[in-house]
């Protein structure tokens, strides 16, 4: 893409104008507002708020559960994407469409549905309770909800990458005597790794900020099952605006960093594909 298009196609000014106006009005100015508000605290104040044990515990849970959920989603997501791309089976189209369900289902609905399922009296909870495996209201429940909402991200970024896989490379490896596992580990996985990482990072980013589906199934205990977004809400409800904005601002910086990582990964993916 080069500058020369500017001279030929019209509409650059108005469209860029609308875009910049909207991005400013909807994203930049509101988010800047958050920073301005938390700036009142000063860096020291923000640091102090964010490093209290309760906030740290919430960050640990949010990031820990999101990381575990993203890792599990990497495995499940790969499995689902692989099966959907490589095999034919009855009901495949339905499964393929259903993958997007967590994305299309309103989070509050997922939240109460998961709680209804995994509460000790729920369909699944009833089976798990005798095993001494409580899911609802524990970090396990939080992780489960995050797996649910993160799955489509991994599957949907992996699918195109798996489709683009060059069959000849695999065939060549097979001809050279590589076993199926070797091909998978040495040929397939390295090729789709950037896509896999992108998907996992997206799932992770979504999981860290997730609120609706988690609050219902989490026990919301400070230090134990309290996630960061809930902590922001709790701070607000205690009229602690400074604390809420401080935590919000930190979350925002982290979101931005994660997005930047995704963009870099996608750049890597692009180069990788061109390299092939």
């Amino acid at each position: 893409m080069t500058r020369r298009h500017v001279g030929v196609l019209p509409g650059f000014g108005p469209t860029l104008g609308i875009t910049v106006f909207m991005v400013s009005a909807v994203v930049v100015i509101p988010l800047m507002g958050l920073f301005v508000r938390s700036a009142g605290l000063g860096f020291g104040g923000v640091w102090e708020t964010v490093t209290t044990p309760r906030v740290l515990a919430a960050f640990r849970l949010s990031f820990g559960a999101s990381l575990i959920a993203a890792a599990i989603n990497a495995v499940i997501g790969f499995l689902v994407a692989w099966t959907l791309v490589r095999y034919e089976f009855p009901g495949k189209r339905i499964v393929d469409a259903l993958v997007d369900l967590p994305f299309a289902l309103p989070t509050a609905v997922s939240g109460i549905a998961l709680t209804a399922l995994f509460a000790p009296q729920g369909w699944v909870g009833r089976l798990l309770a005798p095993l001494g495996l409580p899911v609802a209201f524990t970090p396990l429940g939080v992780t489960l909800a995050l797996i649910f909402i993160g799955l489509p991200f991994v599957v949907r970024t992996l699918q195109p990458a798996l489709m683009d896989l060059d069959a000849e490379v695999e065939e060549a490896a097979a001809v050279l005597g590589a076993g199926r596992w070797q091909i998978l580990g040495r040929v397939v996985l390295p090729t789709v790794l950037p896509a896999l990482l992108t998907g996992v990072t997206l799932a992770f980013a979504r999981a860290v900020g997730e609120y609706g589906s988690v609050v219902f199934i989490s026990g919301n205990m400070p230090h134990k099952t309290e996630i960061v977004p809930l902590l922001i809400v709790a701070k607000l409800e205690q009229y602690d605006y400074a604390g809420a904005t401080a935590i919000g601002a930190v979350m925002l910086v982290l979101s931005f960093a994660i997005l930047l990582a995704v963009n870099l990964l996608q750049g890597w993916t692009g180069r990788h594909r061109e390299g092939n």
């Binding site: 893409m1 080069t2 500058r3 298009h5 500017v6 196609l9 650059f12 860029l16 875009t19 910049v20 991005v23 909807v26 994203v27 930049v28 509101p30 988010l31 507002g33 958050l34 989070t107 997206l202 980013a205 979504r206 860290v208 900020g209 997730e210 609120y211 609706g212 960061v228 977004p229 809930l230 922001i232 809400v233 607000l236 809420a244 904005t245 919000g248 979350m251 925002l252 979101s255 931005f256 994660i258 997005l259 930047l260 995704v262 963009n263």
Partner: peptide, 27 residues
């Protein structure tokens, strides 16, 4: 078109994906 700051603009458009819904409400 190509113009400077394009990647930044795209990242800003993406930002609401990654921002916690609670933070957006708070904002």
């Amino acid at each position: 078109f190509s113009f400077p700051g394009k990647r930044l603009l795209i990242t800003l458009i993406d930002l609401p994906y990654a921002v916690s819904p609670v933070v957006s409400g708070l904002v």
